[in-house]
C-alpha cells in the first residue's frame, strides 16, 4: 500500500506528459478555430473529472446520512439498486432525445449503482464523510479549471468571454457555486455537527443539478446564442487525445484525493488522540 503511492505518482506523471504530447503535437489543428481549440483537451477532461467527483460526493453524503441506522441503510441500498435497474430497463423502452444511445444511458445507470455499492463496501460510515469532503474539494478545483479555460477559449472563438445562454458553461458555474457553498459551510460550522449539515447540503445540492440543467436549457432556447462547432465528425486523433487526457486527469484526481484523504484521516486521528488524552488526565491541579 505504501509503495503504491509513489508508483502511481510516477505512472500519472508519465501519463500526463504523454497526454500533453498528444494534445499539443499529435492531435491535428482544428480548421476554423486554430490552435486555441487545443485547450479543449484540458477543458473537457477537467469537466468530466469534476462531475465524476461531485457524483461520488453525492453518493458518500447519502451514505453518511443513511447508514446512521440500519433501516435507512437497507432502504437506501435497495433504492440504489432499484434505480440502476429501472434506468437500465427504461433506457431501452422510453424514446430518448437524439444523440443518446440507450446502451450508454443504461450502462450509466448500472455504473451509478455499482459505484454506490463499491463506496459502501470500501468505506465505513465515518469515512464516507472524509470521502465527501475530499471529493468536493478536488472537484471544486477541477471545476475551476473548467470555468477558467472556458472563457479563454470563448473569447477568440465566439468573440465574448461569457455566454449566459450557454448551457454547459452556465450550469458548470452554478454547480461550482453549490459546491463552494458546501465547502464554506464545512469551514464555518462547529466541528461536531459539520458532517451532518454538510451531508444534508450535498444531497440538496445534487438534487438541484437536474433543475439547473433544465432551466438553463430552456432559458437558452429563448435567447440568441453563439454558434457552436458541434455538428460534423470529429477527427479520431482528436478523440484519442481527449480520452488519453481524461484518463490522465482521472489518475491525477485520484492521486490528489488519495493523499488528501490520508491527510484528513491523520488529522482526525490526531484529534482523537487529543480527545483521549483529555479523557485521561484528570486535572490534578484542582483545589
Amino acid at each position: 500500500m505504501k509503495r503504491a503511492f509513489p508508483v502511481l505518482s510516477i505512472l500519472t506523471a508519465i501519463l500526463l506528459s504523454y497526454a500533453l504530447y498528444q494534445a499539443l503535437v499529435v492531435a491535428p489543428t482544428e480548421q476554423t478555430m486554430g490552435d486555441v481549440q487545443r485547450i479543449f483537451y484540458y477543458h473537457v477532461p477537467s469537466a468530466w473529472t469534476a462531475f465524476f467527483l461531485f457524483f461520488i460526493n453525492f453518493v458518500a453524503s447519502i451514505q453518511y446520512l443513511a447508514r446512521a441506522n440500519s433501516k435507512t441503510d437497507r432502504l437506501a441500498s435497495y433504492l440504489a439498486v432499484g434505480i440502476g435497474v429501472v434506468v437500465f430497463a427504461a433506457a431501452f423502452f422510453i424514446p430518448l432525445p437524439e444523440g443518446m444511445r440507450p446502451s450508454a444511458v443504461g450502462t450509466t445507470g448500472l455504473l451509478a449503482t455499482g459505484l454506490y455499492l463499491l463506496v459502501r463496501s470500501l468505506f465505513s460510515q465515518a469515512d464516507t464523510d472524509v470521502l465527501a469532503l475530499v471529493t468536493a474539494e478536488v472537484g471544486v478545483a477541477f471545476c475551476l479549471i473548467v470555468l477558467v479555460t472556458g472563457p479563454i477559449w470563448a473569447r477568440p472563438v465566439w468573440g465574448i468571454w461569457w455566454a449566459p445562454g450557454d448551457i454547459r458553461l452556465t450550469s458548470t458555474l452554478v454547480l461550482w457555486l453549490i459546491y463552494v457553498s458546501y465547502l464554506v459551510l464545512r469551514r464555518f460550522s462547529a466541528s461536531g455537527q459539520t458532517p451532518i449539515l454538510a451531508a444534508a447540503l450535498a444531497v440538496l445540492g445534487a438534487l438541484c443539478v437536474p433543475f439547473v440543467y433544465l432551466s438553463i436549457w430552456f432559458f437558452r432556447t429563448q435567447h440568441p446564442q453563439p454558434v457552436m462547432g458541434g455538428s460534423g465528425s470529429i477527427d479520431p486523433r482528436m478523440m484519442h487525445a481527449l480520452l488519453i487526457n481524461w484518463l490522465a486527469f482521472m489518475c491525477f484526481a485520484f492521486l490528489v484525493c488519495w493523499s488528501r484523504y490520508r491527510l484528513e484521516k491523520l488529522r482526525r486521528e490526531v484529534d482523537e488522540v487529543h480527545a483521549l488524552e483529555s479523557l485521561k488526565d484528570v486535572s490534578r491541579s484542582a483545589r
Partner: peptide
C-alpha cells in the same frame, strides 16, 4: 458515559 466536544471531554466516564 463519555461526552466529548471536539478535543474537550466534558464527561469522562
Amino acid at each position: 458515559l463519555i461526552k466529548q466536544f471536539g478535543r474537550f471531554a466534558a464527561l469522562r466516564g
